[in-house]
Write a protein that binds this DNA or RNA. Structure first.
Lengths: 249, 249
DNA sequence: CGCTGAATTGACGGCTCTCAATGTCGGTGG
DNA sequence: CCACCGACATTGAGAGCCGTCAATTCAGCG
């Protein structure tokens, strides 16, 4: 299995499909971004917080390399993951009316970020740009809501993997083989599933030949079937459905 | 039971709690809003679309009276409700990069809206205002994700009712008694539950004395308990929990 | 008065959570 | 080099919540 996880960022975006988007890259390459902004770079090691919920916010970030997890903590101390950000993704725009962080962000691995002061958007009269960036975030939220409300475990896992694949692909990496930078626990917290369910579902997908999975390494073997499972019930002729009796494998 | 559903909009906002917010009212009353804007009013009867997913978008709306449902349609033709908008709420800011509607919006009753061209935000260099408005929307989305991912049916229904109560209260209406402008079907589509589950849960809450419900009329009798159920597992001493055996009522 | 759609109520099955044990990998120290 | 350890992941068994199907009731309306 070949793993496409890399430590550098693609120089240019591929054609961006509607799913992903490379607004972050555009930002990094836009003429308005002066050199001193580009140098507002920040490298964090694994499991370091970029910011925490409630902190004062005056900037947002673009991922240059690595990955970031956005999450919030429920009243009973549990964690709810809101999203994962890959190279080219923008995050940190979700602030309250009083400019405080609405969520926390933590790196999942060694990560390089570029910091953009909020003032940057006001200065350049980039109001429409702002709408465009937040649009991306809203689209993500909508997708997450859709998954949580209307899909079963199979659909959620399949959607999650398909989404990752598409996003990697749109950034020039392999859509078939990649490394998961997040733990099973994180995936479960994101999809509203127990860790065990995540693990079991991945195993079953593997048994059906849809994908190959080993720890953090994932290789998608049958992307069509994966999408069928992700979409609500195109019913891939019973493939990969849970069986009550014994496994025929 | 006294019902607080009214046909006029409150003249002034009460103290806005963090949950709700009256940015819409502030918009309507801000000095930058000229009279011609205020006259950009639009009255719709029940079940009329304000806009549909995919349409070109050049404006957002503030609810003056009535209520609006935001939703999108899944691949298999089912509906996913994203939110309900009450008087004072802003909606219609969720547009794609190419300025197309990301969701549909339909009135739930006779509704009066005020239309704000997107250009309005750019003109007044209200970039920060924009961020503030979208913040409200993001907060809602986060809450919805939290409910869908981490709460059971009881918690979702309780949260839903508590949220409605708070929003009505912050707008000067009764927080204890109000009319639901949406059907059970809509509530289910919003919370990711079957209609039957919504109905059963409401009935059980009523049997426990937490609330009184009759069709669209709701009166909250024990707001504390409702909040305990809404919060994840403060465990209100078993109150209102489903019972396996016979009802003691 | 009958019709229609919404809402309620009941029975049943299945998906997923919980609890628990086992397996695996990476790091640490002897 | 090897044994041990802790974190993560996998696998199994059982229970319960909720979705589905179905029947019934109720409100509104011509």
């Amino acid at each position: 299995m070949q793993i496409a996880q890399t430590s550098h960022i693609a120089h240019q975006c591929h054609v961006c499909d509607p799913r992903g988007g490379c607004l972050g890259m555009q930002l990094l390459e836009s003429p308005g971004v002066t050199d001193h902004l580009k140098q507002a770079r920040r490298i964090s090691r694994k499991a370091e917080h970029v910011f925490r919920e409630g902190e004062d916010a005056d900037a947002f970030y673009v991922v240059r390399s690595g990955s970031v997890k956005s999450y919030l903590v429920t009243e009973d101390g549990e964690e709810q993951v809101l999203g994962f950000y890959l190279p080219g993704d923008v995050f940190g725009l979700d602030t309250t009316e009083t400019d405080q962080r609405m969520s926390s962000a933590i790196t999942l691995e060694t990560t390089s970020l570029c910091r953009f002061p909020h003032a940057y958007l006001a200065d350049k009269s980039q109001g429409s740009n702002l709408l465009r960036i937040t649009a991306e975030q809203m689209q993500r939220d909508h997708n997450l809501v859709l998954m949580l409300a209307r899909k079963d475990a199979d659909g959620r896992i399949a959607s999650f993997l398909d989404d990752l694949a598409c996003r990697y692909w749109s950034r020039g990496y392999s859509a078939s083989a990649f490394l998961l930078s997040m733990s099973r626990q994180d995936i479960g917290c994101y999809l509203g599933l127990a860790v065990e369910t995540v693990s079991r579902t991945l195993t079953r997908f593997q048994d059906c030949g849809v994908l190959q999975v080993n720890r953090r390494e994932v290789e998608i073997l049958d992307h069509d079937t994966l999408r069928k499972i992700a979409g609500i019930r195109v019913d891939a002729s019973g493939c990969c459905k849970k069986v009550v009796g014994l496994d025929s494998a």
